[in-house]
Design a protein around this nucleic acid. Structure first.
Lengths: 270, 270
DNA sequence: CCATATGTTCCGCTGAGCGGAACGCTGTCG
DNA sequence: CGACAGCGTTCCGCTCAGCGGAACATATGG
């Protein structure tokens, strides 16, 4: 019954383009353009001048001006009073917050994540697999935090993180995803398809994954099994190598495994 | 010299309309309609059928169909495979998360909020004043949480919360805001303009506010002074009345006051 | 002072979006 | 079983929202 043409391409939030354009949306319809402008603004972190936006999205200044008027009317954008620069408001955040609050996995996992943090005294995180990337849903950072590269709401290529490997190890299309990932992001990491698949197999067998995405911090992750046997999500504990020894790592592995099982059980019977 | 016509009306996220329509956006341009549909979907919490959306938003089914196609292509919406229902994706959340992470006040306040929670052992929250409403930016909930009505990302009429009063007490247009609020939401609360203004005056003098928005839980809040002397934000501590006595409340007041001063100092010299 | 870049307004043109109508499908009721 | 109702989807002619070039006003600054 369903169906829909629309090619549903990559999300591609282009994390903070600094001066890179988020996408030349010229040639599309008004709706696409409006979102292009809003996204550019949302990624910017600072108020932008009209012409900067126009340049980035590749549209006429007059067009951008009108669009910004619409977006302002809708409450997604505001002008800084003195400078006249444009800036995204928090309305987007409000909307998004309403979404995440209702997310079933994140909902039940929250409490367990807190427990996990308390017993290990390290950073605990929850992530899901979306396409070839891992999306961080929640994170409880340790008092003395390690220099993490990820934050809640950010994306990372799946094979690079422990959580990503954990979920990939249960995915039926792991092979094709791994292939593409090795070809693209794995290029400079020196990853081989064979090696990756072997590792995923190991992960699947032992039930947890280990990885070091940010330099100097290692993460241990276990998949949260959905009722379909695939990995619905992954929980992980990350700690700087200095604070880690064989014994502590073993303990963390154990905690992560039991916690993931508990979450899976609660998610299973929703 | 900025400028811009656009009336910038209420945000009005219409928290979970259940079956109320988020807005009859018919008669507007494509951009406004697209956002209307997306908002409706984002507030829904469950996947919706095409015709339900069309009814709520007051548009032709064919129109909604095309719009949903666009939104799907952009990655903001997806179809549930089996049922064909439509649902908002987490892209909105990702975008919003990028915004909030960079929010200056929330950034510096986060650590202090955690301290505040640790020393008081109760729920600590950070809110800002937007128009006549208070918007909750952050919250650290106590282990045994009280039955809160608010969540991060939600809005509440300003006079009803401790944080709102704290910020209002420093606002130059407190009078006009209070007037409108008393007329609307204060109607059933039995608030009088005179009483509210008197209370705000008291709050301004003593530097903190007390309120009980959710039944059975009282909150103590202090404004975080911006460099312009107005309240840039407010921090608050909430606790169920059972856990509260005069001595503990006094301690909380003290903690909240010192914390707000510390944050203000750090925010001031950014 | 002119030169440059910006934000803003104006206006004729055009195609993206519009919505009525029709089609295929799936249930449901008589 | 056929009639019916509601749904998602597709088609198509119409039209107005959006388009962008051009002109204008207003800073910056050399």
């Amino acid at each position: 019954m369903p169906s829909s043409p629309s090619k549903r391409e990559e999300l591609g939030l282009s994390r903070e383009g600094r001066k890179s354009e988020s996408a030349p949306v010229a040639g599309d319809g008004p709706v696409v353009r409006a979102f292009g402008i809003l996204e550019r603004l949302a990624c910017s972190h600072e108020a932008m001048r009209l012409s900067a936006i126009a340049r980035d999205v590749g549209l006429q200044r007059s067009t951008v001006h009108r669009m910004l008027g619409l977006l302002t009317g809708l409450g997604y954008v505001e002008q800084v009073a003195e400078t006249g620069y444009y800036r995204a408001t928090l309305k987007l955040w409000e909307l998004g917050q309403g979404l995440i609050v209702e997310h079933p996995v994140k909902r039940v996992a929250a409490a367990f994540l807190l427990d996990l943090h308390r017993t290990t005294q390290e950073t605990a995180a929850l992530s899901i697999l979306d396409g070839e990337e891992v999306l961080f849903l929640d994170k409880i950072i340790a008092p003395r935090p390690a220099p993490f590269l990820t934050r809640v709401g950010s994306r990372v290529p799946a094979i690079l993180t422990a959580g990503g490997k954990a979920m990939l190890s249960l995915s039926p299309d792991a092979r094709s995803i791994a292939k593409r990932l090795v070809a693209t992001t794995g290029r400079d990491q020196g990853l081989t398809l064979k090696g990756v698949l072997q590792e995923l197999e190991d992960v699947r067998r032992q039930g947890y994954a280990v990885a070091s995405y940010a330099p100097g911090v290692v993460a241990v992750a276990a998949p949260v099994m959905g009722r379909d046997g695939q990995g619905a999500a992954a929980i992980s504990v990350s700690a700087p190598v200095q604070r880690l020894n064989a014994k502590k790592q073993a303990k963390i592995v154990e905690c992560v495994l039991t916690t993931s099982a508990q979450i899976a059980e609660r998610v299973g019977r929703l």
